[in-house]
């Protein structure tokens, strides 16, 4: 008996939630009862829309809830557009989970800084769930989140709830203020200098556009966070997620199996090479 890693399993959409104008969250449950789906914060699945195509999407649910697989997706291409039209009861193909994860266990005893840009908050959400469920094991926990406009802010209700908690510092900024926005304006890196954490005892988890991660890492380094304590989640084209197709190569690494989460030290020099 040999299992084929390229064959999707079927999952039924149990809930669809519109997050913003171009993002939505799907909750999935297995069609055949295969028990539980366990994953580590930061891992991703390959999602298949029947006849349309398959794409890598990070898992954004609570790792403590193994009955439901949650994905938040932004509409950017053919597959995500088709995915956005699916309704409760429809079926998706799922392969996974794949890849490396955020160092949530290793971060115990430290301050944790989570820096997210745009849809980059989705792959960090499981890390937040994980950490908040073991809150006493960590020092200060800070979420720095940048969105394009106030309308693009993801998980708005959750952010509000987290903000109200005394044990989590949440700072949100937008590139462009609209409406009655009275919060921060500017890129997310501007939040780093005044964020409350001890740089020498901090683990940072960063996800967003590549350029945002590059500058975030530099800013964190400037505050004194060690290169071994900064983690980024990379994105590349992926067709197989199991190291066969070659598409996700990033220098000597395969983002699908060596990543997507990398220690900054491992990718620092690669990030500096244009068109690598």
């Amino acid at each position: 008996m040999m299992s084929d890693p390229m064959i999707p399993r079927q999952y039924r959409i149990s809930r669809v939630r519109r997050e913003t104008a171009d993002t939505f969250t799907l909750e999935l449950t297995p069609v055949q009862d295969e028990g539980t789906f366990s994953f580590a914060p930061g891992q991703f699945n390959m999602l298949y829309v029947f006849g349309v195509g398959e794409i890598p999407i990070s898992i954004s649910g609570d790792p403590a809830n193994p009955r439901t697989v949650v994905h938040t997706t932004r509409v950017v291409g053919t597959v995500t557009r088709a995915m956005g039209t699916l309704k409760r009861g429809d079926v998706l193909g799922v392969r996974g989970p794949f890849g490396s994860h955020w160092p949530v266990e290793e971060a115990e005893g430290n301050d944790v800084v989570i820096v997210a840009g745009g849809i980059g908050l989705a792959p960090l959400r499981p890390a937040l769930f994980y950490i908040l469920s073991r809150r006493e094991k960590y020092g200060r926990v800070v979420l720095l989140y940048g969105a394009r406009t106030p309308e693009d802010i993801l998980y708005r209700r959750e952010l509000g709830r987290w903000r109200a908690q005394f044990d989590l510092d949440v700072y949100v900024t937008v590139d462009r203020a609209t409406g009655g926005w009275r919060g921060n304006v500017g890129v997310v890196t501007t939040l780093i200098p005044r964020a409350p954490f001890d740089p020498l005892n901090t683990v940072a988890m960063v996800c967003g556009p590549e350029v945002m991660m590059r500058f975030t890492a530099l800013e964190l380094r400037k505050r004194g966070v060690g290169a071994d304590n900064i983690f980024l989640s990379m994105e590349r084209n992926m067709k197989c997620a199991v190291g066969f197709c070659g598409h996700c190569q990033f220098g000597p690494t395969f983002v699908c199996k060596d990543g997507p989460v990398f220690p900054y030290r491992r990718v620092k020099d690669l990030l500096a090479i244009w068109e690598l």
Binding site: I7, P8, Q10, R12, F50, G51, G89, D90, V91, G93
Partner: peptide, 14 residues
């Protein structure tokens, strides 16, 4: 060909 699939009422079968 890695697989074939057929549409069903609310999904598909490999």
């Amino acid at each position: 060909r890695l697989f074939r699939a057929r549409r069903t009422e609310r999904g598909f079968n490999i």
